[in-house]
């Protein structure tokens, strides 16, 4: 059984009309089935509005499927009792480094996740120190979050995710708002974490980042356009152009 199993996943966003009734809006994800193996490094790419971020939010139950199922380690994200268990196993790092840091002080922010899990104080201390050392931010642990650069903030956000000891981390365009230096540091972190056995899902627009994964999934209009090893994906560029044309004409 794969670590994450997605079966016929469809997500539709409803819109509230002027009279207050719900009107079906866009279909962000249109019948996707996927298996993500434990320890693998998968990158998801595609144009804006292709459903990448929606897919990411389905992996830890931030969004629930309109139809179909997502299960993590055998637990369905629809199961309310398992929700916190799922979220502690599937960590998430978002695009904007500013809007995911909760506490003013670096180490307090990293402790936020473990605190929510109800872990004893001494164990939290240990995890926070380890997580900060791992991302190379230990010496900045007492600094104010607003004094850090974008890349440093993003590394703090990664520390916040790894302090929960997840089995999988979903990165939703973590480098999109960073300068080249910050981007490189964050990418190095991601590769290191994957080498340690953490299942990694990286959503990105940058092909050089996507190419470092074991497997690339290309999305288009809520569907999977291509799925394979980087060498396969980049070889079939001509085929993909034909496929894009076919979808457009339809």
């Amino acid at each position: 059984m794969a670590f994450i199993e997605i079966r016929d996943l469809t997500v539709e966003f409803t819109r509230i009309a002027e009279d207050g009734s719900e009107v079906p809006g866009t279909r962000a994800i249109d019948g996707i089935s996927l298996d993500i193996e434990q320890g693998s490094f998968v990158s998801v790419t595609g144009m804006n509005g292709s459903g990448k971020s929606t897919l990411a939010k389905c992996l830890n139950g931030l969004l629930l499927p309109t139809s179909g199922n997502v299960s993590v380690d055998g637990m369905n994200t629809r199961d309310d009792d398992k929700l916190w268990d799922i979220r502690s196993r599937v960590g998430m790092v978002f695009q904007n480094p500013d809007n995911q840091i909760v506490s003013s002080i670096v180490e307090d922010d990293v402790a936020f996740g473990p605190e929510n899990l109800g872990i004893p104080p001494l164990e939290i201390r240990k995890r926070v120190d380890e997580a900060l050392k791992q991302v190379g931010m230990y010496e900045h642990r007492l600094k104010g979050a607003h004094m850090l650069s974008g890349g440093q903030k993003q590394r703090v956000a990664i520390a916040g995710a790894i302090a929960m000891r997840p089995e999988c981390i979903v990165f939703d365009e973590p480098t999109a708002m960073l300068d080249p230096m910050g981007r490189e540091a964050v990418m190095k972190m991601i590769l290191e974490l994957n080498a340690e056995g953490i299942t990694t899902i990286l959503i990105t627009h940058f092909m050089n980042e996507a190419a470092q994964a074991d497997r690339i999934i290309v999305m288009q209009k809520g569907r999977i356009l291509a799925d394979g090893a980087p060498s396969e994906i980049f070889m079939t560029a001509e085929d993909m152009a034909a496929e894009l044309k076919r979808i457009k004409d339809r």
Partner: peptide
């Protein structure tokens, strides 16, 4: 910003003050 932060907090298992511990009691 509030919406993004709320999402990030939920992703980090925030579910109110119940059962929460503190690093520095």
């Amino acid at each position: 910003i509030a919406q993004e932060l709320a999402l990030a907090m939920e992703a980090r298992c925030y579910h109110g003050g119940k059962g929460r511990t503190r690093m520095n009691e």
